[in-house]
């Protein structure tokens, strides 16, 4: 099939800014985006920069944005993207600085991984033989170990994007999905003896409570790791462990209580309830946003939902299920 690849080019050695270059080719039906890029690099344009190695979605080198979303180029067939004569847009991963063409500087990604102390920390004398643990626990962790560290989830994380857009320095941004999925792998490991410390650290600002449930990381993960689900599991574990003295837990509780009381969300008290009513230091910076929302008609004083009773029943039954 005839296809055009519109590739974002950038070479810091030239004086040019980033630009798009279109390569057209006759691509066999089995061609992946990576096949096409390799074809370009080998046959037509040796200056095109990209990382790739295994060609079978194992090494994690070739994550990039394809038609706007992070994907592994080696796992994405052109025929699934466009019809004969169509165009595919290829860009480097987002949320990380571009070094050249499709090559990004992954340092922010690795720094976040490192920040969760990503190694097993058992205490006490090692057993002579293996640790005896249930297979189900290992199976669950193997699902998280399926992560190939490609960075797709970090590329498309909307929380991270918003932080970077706000000008938050990258080292101050939140841990983001991949590192938290990695953290889950240790918190969920019955052999690890630092689960509580880990959860406590992860419950701090910039950790598990910063996720906004946008599902993007689940959507783009090429290995089914479902980072957001792991983050939610970490929240459960943290709350169960009694680590609740933090904005995240208070926020979740305020959410819950408001729904139970009014059948809908009371946005006015949500923020103060999350950070604490007398926490001027954290409340003050939120004021302008609150005022803008009020002006735009997005904030309403608490008012009850029509079928409040029914909603309360649902909440109660969920609470009961949780207790059990």
């Amino acid at each position: 099939m005839q296809v055009s690849l519109r590739v974002r080019r950038f070479d810091p050695e030239s004086n040019q800014g980033p630009y798009y270059q279109t390569y057209s080719m006759d691509a066999p039906d089995y061609y992946t985006v990576l096949d096409a890029l390799i074809h370009i690099r080998e046959e037509t344009d040796g200056t095109l920069g990209l990382r790739c190695s295994c060609r079978s979605a194992i090494c994690g080198s070739c994550a990039m944005r394809i038609d706007g979303h992070a994907k592994l180029a080696c796992k994405t067939k052109i025929i699934d993207l466009t019809a004969d004569g169509g165009e595919v847009t290829v860009e480097p991963v987002g949320n990380m600085p571009v070094v050249k063409d499709l090559i990004a500087d992954m340092k922010p990604f690795w720094d976040k991984i490192r920040a969760v102390d990503p190694w097993l920390q058992p205490e006490g004398p090692e057993p002579e033989r293996e640790y005896v643990v249930p297979n189900e626990a290992m199976q669950d962790l193997a699902g998280a170990m399926n992560c190939i560290m490609c960075g797709a989830c970090v590329s498309d994380c909307t929380v991270l994007e918003a932080e970077l857009n706000r000008g938050v320095p990258v080292e101050k941004t939140w841990l983001a999905p991949a590192a938290l999925a990695k953290a889950y792998r240790f918190v969920g490991d019955p052999r690890d003896d630092h689960q509580y410390d880990r959860l406590e650290k992860l419950s701090d600002s910039g950790g598990i409570w910063d996720c906004t449930h946008c599902f993007e990381c689940i959507e783009v993960c090429p290995k089914g790791v479902a980072p957001m689900d792991r983050i939610m599991a970490l929240r459960d574990k943290a709350v169960s462990a009694g680590i609740t003295n933090n904005n995240g837990t208070r926020h979740a509780k305020a959410f819950h209580d408001s729904i139970k009381a009014y059948g809908r969300l009371d946005e006015v008290t949500l923020v103060p309830k999350s950070v604490g009513f007398f926490n001027i230091r954290e409340l003050l910076p939120q004021m302008p946003t609150g005022l803008r929302m009020l002006k735009a008609g997005k904030l309403r004083l608490p008012h009850k939902a029509e079928n409040k009773k029914k909603i309360k029943q649902i909440v109660d039954s969920l609470d009961k299920e949780q207790m059990e």
Partner: peptide
């Protein structure tokens, strides 16, 4: 194998929880 397991490799287990 034991050392790898102690390092953290999530080896499949049998029904008794052993490797």
């Amino acid at each position: 194998i034991i050392e790898l397991e102690h390092m953290g490799v999530v080896f499949n287990r049998d029904e008794t929880g052993h490797l």
